[in-house]
Each structure stands twice: as C-alpha cells, then as structure tokens.
Design a protein around this nucleic acid. Structure first.
Length: 902
RNA sequence: GGGCGGUUAGCUCAGCUGGUAGAGCGCCACGUUUACACCGUGGAUGUCGGGAGUUCGAGCCUCUCACCGCCCACCA
C-alpha cells in the first residue's frame, strides 16, 4: 500500500540505494548492443564549493538529457569531477589560517601550505558531490576526476610543454592585470570594471627651453605621473606640431619627456596632448613601445610607490630639491595616498590647471570586488590565443559545433575574433606548477620533468648545471580547458577516450563561454583534432530576486538543499526544468517549487488510484488491441504526449517538455481519464473492466517513464511499487516509443469532454446547486451525436450530475439551454433558475458569438484576404464561420424559447 | 562607445518558422464524487511598453522612441 502522501525524503534515500546497487550510473549502463555513445562532461564545480541554485539548474538539465538518452538505449557517460579553483581555494585556506591565528602561508612555506590545502580539499571536496547526488545526478561517480589528480596533471604538463615547443606558449614582459592584494597576475576576464566617481586632473608641464610655455595634460591617476616618460600629440595637430621632437620637463621629478607625434593622441579630447606612462597604462604601454620610450615602474608588488633606489625612476634624472622633496613625500606610500600628495604638490607649484569630476571605470578583482587591479609590468607566461582561436572560430562558423540558443555564437565570435594573449601564469602556490626551469643565466628549459630539463641544460651549457624551477602555477582555467579529454584519460589512449570523445553536449551558463567553452574548443581542436562537443547548450543564470548574479561574497545565494529538504529533489528539478526557457535569467519563486511538489503528490495519488482499483501492469499489453473508446482515446493522447516530450528534449526545450508532461498527467489523465474509468472499474467484472485496468496501468507506466528524467526518485519508486515482477530499475528501462493513434476515438472523447464541461459551466454560472440532479434532454442531435450520447450516457450523467439523459424532438420551453455542436441540451429547471439571469446569460453568449461572426465575415469579405491568403486558411475561416453562425442561430432559438409556453 | 536581451493577466513567467492570447501562483464562487483539500468544479482579469511601417493578417517581421538588465571596450 502506498502512503497517503509522497514522502520525498524517505523515497530519495531508498531509491538512491537501488541505483547504487544496480550500478545504473556507470558508463554504458543499460545501453543497447551497438548503441551510439552519448557523453557529457560536467562543468567541474570548485572543490571547496557547495551547491548553489545555478549548479542545481545546470546539473538538472544535464541529468535530464543523460537519463533520457540512457533510457533510449544510448551508451551514456556523464563524466563528473571537480576543479581545484586556484585563487578561490588558496584564499579559503589562507583565511582559515588567519581565523585560527595560525602562521600564514609565507611563514610556513610552500610545502607545508600545500599540505594544508590538500587536507582541506579532502575534507570539503566531498560536500558538493554529495549534494549533486541528492539532486539525483546520474554521473558515473566511479570515474570522478580532479583537475589536480595525477592523470590530469600529466595532461596539463604535456599541453604546456607541447605548446611551448610549438611556440604557442611563451614568456614575455608586458603589462598585466595585477592584483596587489593576492600579489598575482590575473587574466583580462578576471577583472571587473566598476564605474566610480573620479576626477580628471589637468596638469601643466613646462616645455624645455621655452620659458613660460607649457603643455597641458590630463590624468585620472596623478600618482602615476612620476612614471611619465613622454608626451604624445597627434602628428597633424597644428597646435603642437612644432613641439614634436622637443622635450617637456616632468614636474616634481625633472625627467625630460620627449614629445612624440602619435595617432593615439586625439586632438578632440582634452587638450589634445597625452602624457605617456608606459609602465602603468595599457594604452601608454603600446605608445611607449612604438615610440621607444623608457618604461618606469613605480610600484612594488603591493602597489606601494617605490622611488628611493628605483633605478628606472632615477635614470637620467638630475639631483634636485624638487626630486628630493618628491622622494621624501611620496616614497613608500600606497597608490591612493600618493595620488593625493601628488595633486597637492602640483597645486602648490601652480601646475594644476583644473580638476573635473568624472565617472571613471576602475578595474577591480572579480572575486571580492574590493581590490583595485593595477596594470603592472612583469614577466609572465602567455598562450598565443589568437592562433589557437582560429580553428575554434571555424568550427562554429562551419556548424561542427552549434550553440543553442544560436545567438550566443555572436558573443563567441566577437570575443574570439578580438582575443588577446592569454596570461596563464599565476603567482600562487595552489595549482599546477609550471614545468619550466631556469639556468644561472636565466635561460629557460621547459620539459616534462626536472630530469629532462637537467639533461637539456647539460647539453646547452656543456656541463651539469643547477636549475631553479619556476615558482608560478598555471591559471585554473588552463586545466579546465582540457577537461573533455583529460578526464577520459588523455594523453593515454584509453578506450573511454576512443569511445566518448568528442562529447555530445556541453551544458553551461553564458558567464563562462569565454573562460571555459572557448578554451576547451581551442585545446580540443589542437590536441584531439576534433571539437570537444557538438552542441553547446547555454542556459539562463539563476539570479536573486533583484536580478543580481548570485555569489558567495554577496551572500545572496539560495541553497537548493534547503529546497530539497522542504519540497523534495523531484519538485526542485521539475521547477528548474520548467523554468529553463531559452532566455537569460531565472528568478526563482518558491511558490513554483511548491506547485510542482503538489504535482508530484498528484501523480502519487494517481498511482494510489491504480492500486485501489487493482489496475496492475499487464505484461505485453498493447493498447492497439483495446476495444473501449475511452482506452483508445487515452492511448492516443499518450502517444501524442510522448511525441511532444521526446521532441522537446531533443530540441533542448526543457520547459516545453515539462509543460507537456504536466498537462497530460494532470489535466488529461487524472482529471478526465481516471474519472471516466470509475464507472467501469466500480462495475461488474468483464472484458471492459479488465481492459480498462490494464490501460490505467499502462498509461501510468508511460507517464512514469516519460517523467523519469525530470522526477527520477518519485518515478523510480512508483515503478518498483507498481509491479511485482522484480524488474530492473526504471532508469534503465526503455523510453516509450509509441505509435498508436486513433483520431476517431480522440474526436469522440473530446466531444464528450466538451459536452460535460459545457453543462458544468452553465450549472455553475446559473447557480444550480452542485448536488442537484438535473434532467437533460437533447434535441437536434445528428446520428453520430445520438450514438455518442448513448454510449456515454452513464458518464455524462455522472460527471454532469444528471439523473436522466434523453433524446427529445424539441428543446423544452422555459429551460436552461446549452448548445454543443448541432445539438441543444435543455434542463428543465422551472422555479430553480432565475429566468432573467438566464436571459442575460444567453444574450451575453449571443453577443460574443456575434462579434466573432462579424470578424470572420469581414475577413472573408476582404478581397485581398481571399486573393492572397492560403487556401487552407480561408477554408479554416469558412468552417469557423459556419460553426459560429450555427451556434448563434441555436443560441438565439434558445433565447426565444426561454419564456415558458404560457 | 560597441553588442546582446527584456518590457504579455495582481505576481513569476511561457508563447518554435506571423493565421482565433496561455501556464503556475494568487483571487472569487461552489463543493455533489471514498486516488488526491499538496484536492475537485466553475469563474474573473490583458488596447501583448509607446509610435510608425511591411502584410490579406503582427505579441511574433522592419524602423523608431522610452525605460530596465547584462556582456564587451585602452579614450588621457
């Protein structure tokens, strides 16, 4: 016996155990012989993370696809794993050390610190996996990988070494986005520009040798002026043409600034002259390189100003009182204090022309959004993204990989076509240490191992030489970029790699198209020679109620586990799928989850209905052999629902699939079919009852199957409870592939539904007491209708609450009258109903129909419509007109008869 | 500055290639029916952001305006 309500928590535990035991998640489980592979790699969550609602959506959709394909008999692998998340994880552990007042990472050293990170990984890494399991994710957990496990590290090393040897990875000194708090380089993508209220200071720089003449330049960052090494003006700018080649004198420092002609200077902007600070501004860096200006770096790694003993700063600058004062005032200050002091000093000297308020975009670190990122001149490793991007662009261009929805391709192209070198080194400890070793003279040896590097060095130097390994680690995304093949065993030639690469679909959010999708495309094509996936399904981002992106630091994260505890995993999954329309954001409402929890209960109760009426699964039952119209009808509707669901999932239209399932289950199967079946099931035993019992069970089985990808726990439970044949898990059973269709039966029962609805509606509208049994007399019924009335006499009477249903020659006077098709149903209710109200009702009805008729008539009278509209549309309009006109006539007749034949 | 998306019932949102406006929740009324009150039956509510255009026909296509959101970008 099933309990009265569905206890999600208990069922989830029990069903999980069943799946475990059946090893139903394993790659290839349930696959038909010779089945084509279907594979998805999970977007690896951070090891230290916990499940947020975005993960829940992402993984629900993947699980829907994977369960669907597994039931269809494909050879399915859903490859799970986790990401080491360099910066995030290192920060977490550092914070822990601080909180516990233990020595910091620099004090305990690299090795000890890494031990602590690994310990933390072991402690926290299982959390999110368990949460994914609670969601019902059918990943092959036996194949779980980690970006820093041995195999994946091997893949990382190989990729680095090979790309280096192909000159697609190189070391370069250039401006990089530097995080002064973490003291590491970050990529362009990890910088978030935030608009802040700032100032634009206009400074006067004296011209050398021209007493009284100066040139005005503007800056939003006065502290960097100390690093100016030139001034640019437009080559064609008449105001400044004569100055090109001359020098200005940098105030406070005394450095001679060469005035250069460069297209970068825009005559329309500001004064038309730009100061050039090549070591502290990305534009200026380019100008500096073009014009061969010196680079003066002013900052240390924490972005404090270093002037004293700074050779670049002092180079070519004469001793002076100004210089001494500047060093005394500014040296050692942080950026922001230095800025104020510089402005004050310039003002004091009368060199501050004016200050404007100006909104400026300030680069911040993407994680905490508190540190201002500094353009900083350092040596870093770069990948030649431009070269790697070319095949990746072509793949999408030529349709070998498709984005769904398609408009994301534009975003992808936009970025890929303007891609810049990818800075792949990070000054962190947690991550893959770069396989590069330096000789005493700084010569670099990139190799698979230290031994190999030594050997190379020995050859190079002609003797054994001590080498120092590069301290830096690789960007976390460098290892995730290899995920689709590294997880399958690459660089080894494993059977899994052979079988499951390229993967079929990638399911992810648009926020990591650049970070991840694009880079997987690049490495996949380069190393495997094939796109890593054929479909990229981009889903919405789940946002908080204000529409803001959820983040741990903002603390606006909805915990899906709380929702699972309250409503069950199935309800949450169904909600997410139902809301996964191919749009941009999802704002999750709890009421929606509750609604789908109710849906789960509804299905549960339908199963209880089946149990109560002993509707047991009949092996080999074929609805095509059914005799009863009702059964033929519901079987037809089942086929239609299955077709809709299958098509929707294939097209990644998860919301359509969910809606079709909801409607079929609740509004057709429960609301109508089960109600229709009651008289038979309560009646005498016989062929009709036997057939109906079998059909009730058969449809329920199809519903459970079709619903399984969305609500795996509930459906698996019902599957097991319903039958007694000791069959295998539902998740490994066949996806319904139905072909039965009887449109005559469908028409007949749809007429029946329409008829009952019409009677109910009028009863309710005319305030006929719900319990009152009425008499129904039908006039004007055509032969088919008369036959139908006879076949469904019992049902109509039962569901429309009528004690009699008879044919009559003419409608009764003074009765409630309802027109259904060509027939008129009348209910003599003299004294019970309010004649005036009924008259009003009929008038309203007629009015509505008349409007309809008017519209269609106008359309058909329109010559252009008749000339240009397709024949079937015209035909449809004609039919509609005929129907509406007939309905109107009948309703008018009903109105005329309303007065009792006094 | 460039790009993308949104504006549909009180709320949250569906409406694929143009052909009679939908769901869930909420709301109102009524509760006959032993699967289900996490329920049943019935009901109300929309100049589909504004304007113009294309079309026989526009929520859907084009242009334009307004507001909202996101992504990208080196304008001192």
């Amino acid at each position: 016996m099933l309990d009265k309500t569905f206890d999600a928590a208990a069922v989830e535990t029990r069903v999980s155990a069943v799946w475990d035991e059946a090893e139903a998640f394993k790659a290839g489980a349930g696959a038909k012989p010779g089945a084509a592979p279907y594979s998805i790699v999970i977007p690896p969550p951070n090891v230290t993370g916990s499940l947020h609602i975005g993960h829940a959506l992402n993984n629900t959709l993947q699980d829907v696809l994977v369960r669907f394909e597994r039931m269809r008999g494909r050879d399915v692998l859903w490859q799970p794993g986790m990401d080491h998340a360099g910066i995030a994880t290192q920060m977490v552990v550092e914070r822990q050390l601080m909180e516990r007042q233990e020595p910091g990472r620099r004090e305990i050293g690299r090795e000890k610190f890494l031990e602590k990170v690994w310990a933390w990984k072991d402690e926290s890494g299982g959390l999110i996996i368990n949460q994914l399991k609670r969601l019902g994710c059918s990943c092959d957990w036996s194949r779980e990988r980690f970006t820093m496990d041995e195999g994946l590290s091997k893949a990382v090393t190989k990729v680095f070494v090979e790309l280096y040897r192909e000159k697609l990875i190189y070391r370069d000194k250039r401006l990089v986005n530097w995080d002064p708090t973490l003291q590491t380089a970050v990529s362009d993508l990890e910088v978030e520009n935030i608009e802040m209220q700032g100032h634009l200071w206009h400074f006067k720089y004296p011209i050398e040798g021209e007493e009284g003449r100066s040139i005005v330049v503007a800056t939003t960052r006065p502290e960097t002026m100390l690093g100016d090494t030139g001034i640019a003006v437009h080559p064609e700018d008449e105001r400044y043409k004569d100055l090109i080649g001359k020098y200005a004198i940098l105030p406070l420092v005394g450095r001679r600034l060469r005035i250069v002609g460069d297209e970068h200077a825009d005559p329309e902007t500001g004064s038309g002259a730009v100061k050039i600070t090549p070591a502290h501004d990305f534009n200026d860096f380019e100008v500096g390189k073009r014009q061969d200006l010196p680079m003066v770096n002013l900052f240390d790694t924490e972005a404090n100003v270093v002037l004293e003993g700074n050779a670049e700063f002092l180079d070519g600058v004469a001793e002076s009182d100004d210089l001494k004062a500047t060093i005394a005032t500014i040296n050692g200050l942080d950026r922001f204090t230095a800025r104020k002091r510089v402005v004050a000093m310039m003002e004091e000297k009368g060199l501050l022309e004016k200050v404007e308020e100006k909104p400026v975009m300030v680069p911040h670190d993407e994680k905490s959004k508190t540190t201002v990122i500094e353009p900083y001149l350092t040596d870093q490793w770069y990948a030649d993204a431009k070269t790697l991007a070319q095949p990746a662009i072509a793949s999408v261009r030529e349709g070998r990989t498709t984005f769904i929805p398609k408009n994301w391709e534009k975003t992808y192209f936009e970025w890929m076509e303007n891609i810049r070198p990818w800075c792949i080194s990070r000054q962190l400890w947690w991550g893959h240490q770069i396989p590069a070793w330096y000789g005493p003279d700084g010569k670099v040896f990139v190799a698979y191992s230290e031994d190999e590097a030594r050997a190379e060095a020995a050859t190079h130097y002609g003797e054994a030489t001590d080498l120092t390994r590069d301290e830096d680690v690789l960007d976390t995304w460098f290892s995730s970029a290899l995920w689709p093949f590294s997880t399958l065993g690459w660089p080894d030639e494993t059977p899994e790699l052979e079988r499951y690469y390229p993967t079929t679909a990638l399911v992810t959010g648009f926020d990591i198209i650049f970070f991840w999708v694009a880079r997987m495309m690049m490495t996949g094509l380069h190393f495997m020679g094939k796109e890593p996936f054929s479909d990229v399904y981009i889903h919405a981002l789940v946002r908080d109620e204000k529409g803001a992106k959820m983040s741990k630091t903002k603390g606006n994260v909805i915990d899906p586990i709380v929702l699972i505890d309250e409503y069950g995993a199935d309800a949450l999954r169904f909600t997410l799928a139902a809301m996964a329309a191919q749009g941009r954001d999802i704002k999750l409402a709890t009421a929606r989850v509750e609604g789908y929890r109710n849906f789960a209960t509804k299905l549960w109760n339908a199963a209880r209905f089946a149990e109560h009426y002993e509707c047991k699964r009949v092996g080999g039952f074929d609805p095509a052999t059914a005799k009863e119209t009702l059964n033929r009808w519901i079987a037809t509707e089942t086929t239609r629902a299955a077709t809709a669901v299958t098509g929707a999932i294939e097209a990644y239209r998860f919301n359509d699939a969910a809606a079709a399932l909801y409607r079929f289950t609740w509004n057709l199967y429960c609301d109508w079919y089960l109600e229709f079946s009651k008289p038979v099931l309560n009646g005498e035993d016989g062929p009709a009852k036997t057939e109906t019992r079998a059909t009730v069970a058969w449809v329920l089985d199809r519903i459970i199957s079709l619903l399984h990808p969305f609500m795996p726990f509930l459906t698996e439970e019902l599957w097991a409870r319903e039958g007694d044949e000791g069959r295998t898990a539902l998740m490994l059973n066949a996806w319904p592939d139905l072909g039965f269709e009887d449109s005559d039966a469908a028409d007949e029962i749809n007429w029946l539904i329409e008829t009952i609805s019409a009677v109910r509606s009028v009863r309710s509208e005319m305030n006929v007491p719900a319990g009152a049994m009425i008499e129904l007399a039908v006039s004007g019924a055509a032969f088919t209708t008369a036959a139908r009335l006879q076949s469904h006499n019992v049902l109509i009477r039962r569901l429309a609450r009528a004690e009699s249903l008879t044919l009559a020659h003419a409608p009764r006077a003074g009765a409630l009258q309802i027109v259904v098709g060509e027939a008129t149903f009348s209910m003599p209710l003299e004294g019970v109903i309010d004649i005036d109200a009924e008259r009003a009702r009929l008038l309203r009805e007629i009015d509505k129909i008349a409007k309809d008729v008017g519209k269609i008539e106008a359309k058909l009278a329109n010559e252009k419509f008749m000339a240009k509209a397709p024949e079937e549309v015209i035909e449809e309009q004609r039919e509609r007109l005929a129907e509406a006109a007939a309905l109107k006539a009948k309703t008018e007749a009903a109105l005329a008869r309303l007065e009792p034949a006094a």
